[in-house]
Design a protein around this nucleic acid. Sequence first.
DNA 1: AACCGTCACTATATTTTTTATAGTGCTATG
DNA 2: CATAGCACTATAAAAAATATAGTGACGGTT
Lengths: 114, 114
Amino acid sequence: MDADVDFCPMCEAMQLLQEKWMLHIIRALLEGPRGFNELSRSSGGCNPATLAQRLDQLEGLGLVSKTVLSVMPPRTIYDLTPAGRDLRAVIDAIHQWGQGHRANLPRTVQLHGK
Amino acid sequence: MDADVDFCPMCEAMQLLQEKWMLHIIRALLEGPRGFNELSRSSGGCNPATLAQRLDQLEGLGLVSKTVLSVMPPRTIYDLTPAGRDLRAVIDAIHQWGQGHRANLPRTVQLHGK
DNA sequence: AACCGTCACTATATTTTTTATAGTGCTATG
DNA sequence: CATAGCACTATAAAAAATATAGTGACGGTT
């Protein structure tokens, strides 16, 4: 019955992407699959609690896959699914905007891991 | 001397866009100039304190212009500058992704004003 | 002319979110 | 055999966002 007349995919997408570290995590994963701590570093320093909750969320939405390789010692690999990889367009748009507007941006000094 | 070897425009851009309400505010302004309360509504319900601080920030970065039309009663107009309007590419990318992945998104029910 | 709503905010207190820190049990490396 | 790394979780503290109320003047209703 009450269909999603008031359901706006873009709003939901913005809601998701505006969460702290979300964009950074996705950008890091676009460079390749990563382990938990590795991802924390290459995202620019996301703390473990937040990272864990973001990854749960992304996994729940089917944007990230989690693979446990060995149980002891724990070894986990996070990777983007095709749906997640499609976010590259968004990251690229941000990248391009950033390049074209360096002048406008502040220097908060926040560099992503090598 | 110490040049911005460690200054990454994309990181700064992501830092900015991930702030709560930022994307929503920009999307609303892309539809046309708005007054303060009007913007609060069409952004989807941003609270005045946060909205004021985001607008200050955007104005400071030269992405939004603030024009005071009359002092009493106060009448203010916020609009995107050319640099701000360039963010349309980002919003569009999110829009497209959202459309293509409705299935993945949650239904948080959060609709922007008419 | 008294009343209500609107404008653009600010101040305050409360709630939510993010954060740093420490710690888990195990193994590979030095 | 001490150290560092793995993937996290728990906890408490700090930071950010929020609801709410209020400012003072105007425009529109009654």
